[in-house]
Design a binder for these strands. Sequence first.
DNA 1: CAATCGATGATCT
DNA 2: GATCATCGATTGG
Length: 178
Amino acid sequence: MRRLRPSFFARHSAVVAPDLLGKVLRVADCAGRITEVEAYGGADDAASHAFRGPTPRNAVMFGPPAQLYVYFTYGMHYCANVVTGPVGDGQAVLLRAVDPLSGIDVMSARRGGRKTHLADGPGKLCQAFGVDLNWNGRTTDGLLFDDGFVVDDVTVSARIGISKEVDRPWRWEVPPSK
DNA sequence: CAATCGATGATCT
DNA sequence: GATCATCGATTGG
């Protein structure tokens, strides 16, 4: 149950992302083991929100690492990222999926009573953990931990749902528990 | 199982 | 006015 320190996030997003697999996201009573992440770069990554420079929405990406970058998309979903790399770069890691560990009843209630597929997608993850725009810019200190889960069978592939840089292999996942 | 498609609104051009 | 770092229902194999 070791808290991830800010220095963990000071590295490049493509290094931090795979290192987050198996780590634990804990928000109040809810916790889950991270199973899928994607890395996003700054000015060198056309698929990143940071590609065209700072705007009101993506401002947090250009701030210090280890902060949450939460945005609203498709008119109905939130997505949660952790800012990484040097200040001003705009790098972040998108938290795409976790395996629920505790607080499952709360997650289920937030997810409309579903008992499966509670957090196996970036929008579902935010809904299950109650993450919305109020979380944008908050620190991740006290939210991310190393609980000693062994990471095995990591799969690397292209990022999902984007139309640029579609071949960049910046998505990492481990099998869900099932 | 995979492919398709509508919902729904902020954001940026 | 177009574009989304998505989800869930539906359709078809």
